[in-house]
Amino acid sequence: MIEFSNIDIIRNLLIATQWTILLSLAAFAGGITVALLLTAARLNKTPLLSIFVRIYVEVFQGTPLLMQMFLCFFGLSMISIEISAWNAAALSLTLFTSAFLVEIWRGCIDTLPKGQWEASRCLGLSFLQTLRYIILPQAIKTALAPSIGFSVQVVKGTALASVIGFVELTKAGSMLNNATFEPFKVFTFVAIIYFILCYPLSWTSKFLEKKFNASR
């Protein structure tokens, strides 16, 4: 048996942490992109599109992320796309993230007074111009804090990629646990690393929220 010192454990965990960060970034970037498209689809007054967005949100918020990952993993392999654990995890986290972001942003956009849309319309601005010049600049301010807050859920969500075999921080922890038989120590380290990743995001979110509330 190989002996692992604390330094070895931490070094191995930190290597895996890079994948946690990378997966989080991919999921968040992907989630923002999809959520933007869904938001535009929802605001456009086609009933079919907004029903689709509502069902999309309901399904991805109403089922476990773990199930979504399994379905992406086995579903994609069924339609004979060669799928890696990375792809399945990134895809499912993207969909999951977008469903929550679109809902968070909905709140931010819908609390803007109706008069903002009406005044824009009276001045002859098109739908997209109204979004770009009037609605989004105001909504982004209110959406920033809760969106960053949600990014904590994304980072934590990447831990589930360990279940489909993607070697990120949690999977590395499990593997080190099996090699060292020191679960208390290993999972404490793992938890600390997640905390270091997540806490600044939580803090920033809270800080921005306070700042925004104070400026009103």
Binding site: A159, T170, E182, F184, F187, Y194, F195, C198
Partner: peptide, 22 residues
Amino acid sequence: ELIRNTPFIVQLFFIFFGLPSI
């Protein structure tokens, strides 16, 4: 803050695998 900033699965592993060792 400790709970909110760590994944549920890690908390679970810590409780199930970690606590028996103490």
